[in-house]
């Protein structure tokens, strides 16, 4: 690389690192959101059954 390899490879490596890091962070955020969403939906499902007798009890 014409004696400048010490600058070219870090530049490319750094670019790749930042690009991949952004992708990983975005995917992680997406996965964690979807996991939280499915957890919430799972806890919500049985609720109508539980809640319908509540007015009689109160």
């Amino acid at each position: 690389m014409g004696g400048h390899a010490a600058f070219i490879w870090p530049a490319l490596g750094l670019t790749a690192a930042v690009l991949i890091l952004m992708l990983v962070a975005t995917l992680y955020s997406l996965r964690s959101g979807e996991a939280a969403l499915s957890r919430l939906k799972a806890t919500r499902e049985p609720r109508p059954g539980r809640r319908s007798p509540a007015p009689d009890a109160g």
Partner: peptide
Amino acid sequence: LLLLQIRAELTHRKVRAL
């Protein structure tokens, strides 16, 4: 990345609303 990030934001917003 933008599409993925928008999807993530939408999901988090839905979680907050729920």
